[in-house]
Nucleic acid binder design. Structure first.
Lengths: 183, 183
DNA sequence: TTGTTTACTTACTAATAAGTAAGTATCTTC
DNA sequence: GAAGATACTTACTTATTAGTAAGTAAACAA
């Protein structure tokens, strides 16, 4: 029954995105799953272990998403990425980077390293997507693809944060402009 | 001696920006100031009271900053705003919105409301700045000034978060592009 | 059938959190 | 110089936290 383990990671992922890593406890996981907090420690001895599992899951989700879009035109790939953020926005969630980066200094070293790796690979993917799209004449922008990728990721991340405070129109406005600026 | 009170707010402000609102304790404030945790409660009975004082201070800083730049050309005003974020970046801090928005759901109601008010007034100021600059022919951009203001604030906020994880070059890249896109 | 592993539970611990009640020294006001 | 107010301290409480040690019931393996 790896079922429980997966449920724990899934719930932890949700909790990180809604409350933040330092603001949820093992009780927040144990209660909804109707297990004891020691059961959570059975699978994830420390909170850092659980945090790592959540980031790893995010990396996997990202990779499988990317793999599914690989054959699409680059603008469609980018739209899929934006749609995945829109989905989070609708469920009043922020992304993992948006949630963990403000707490970065308080995170255990291994989580920090994994988060750096995650962000680097997201940026690398968007950069490649922009480069390919530019070559095909789908995208048009000034500056390097890497800089533009940073701008896009930065905006998607922040738009989820701002949406929380200012309402969901913030996300719509920002994501529309992002595409308009490069198409 | 309102000195202690001011020191408490100043330290709380720093702690929110470096660790996050839910990740610092009254001990983190009492120890460096060489006072007891009850002394902090003397000035700020609850943590929400302290949080409100910090947001209020941020609003005041913002307003006095803005007032000082009022007579400058709009591009200079915007550069000042960006410089204030650069300053935070250099000190490895995020802005108050970047720090508090991920924890928004866990914040007491009065802090949520004050934060909404703060973000709305920042966006309103940038919007006005862009509008005036556009009229004078200083700025050139597509779409409404309000949408563009949202984009700029969103980027500044996120660039501080990303800088933490990916290094300070993230901020430089993003802020440069922001200006290039409208000048 | 016996032994071992899996997946937990019960029942804790030690640390830390926010918050409070009551006391005290110093400064201020009349 | 007496009476408050100010700015704290000492000494708590109660709740919650991550984490652990030891036990158990069921599934599986030899």
């Amino acid at each position: 029954m790896q079922d429980t383990k997966e449920k724990i990671v899934g719930l932890a992922d949700q909790l990180i995105k809604t409350k933040g890593f330092n603001s949820f406890s093992y009780k927040d996981i144990a209660d909804p799953l109707a297990i004891r907090n020691a059961a959570v420690h059975y699978y994830f001895p420390t909170k850092a272990d659980l945090g790592m599992a959540v980031i790893d899951q995010e990396i996997n989700f990202m990779n499988t998403g990317i793999a599914n879009w690989e054959t699409l035109p680059e603008d469609q790939q980018l739209r899929h990425l934006i749609a995945s953020f829109e989905n989070k926005c609708n469920r009043h969630m922020v992304c993992i980077m948006g949630s963990l980066s403000p707490d970065y200094n308080t995170l255990p070293e291994n989580m920090q390293a994994r988060l750096r790796q995650f962000s680097a690979s997201v940026i690398a993917w968007v950069t490649k997507c922009l480069e390919n799209g530019q070559k095909k004449g789908i995208f048009h922008f000034k500056g390097t693809a890497g800089d533009r990728a940073l701008l896009i990721v930065s905006n998607l991340l922040a738009s989820l944060l701002l949406s929380r405070v200012m309402g969901e129109t913030a996300f719509e406005n920002i994501s529309k402009q992002l595409l308009d600026d490069i198409l």
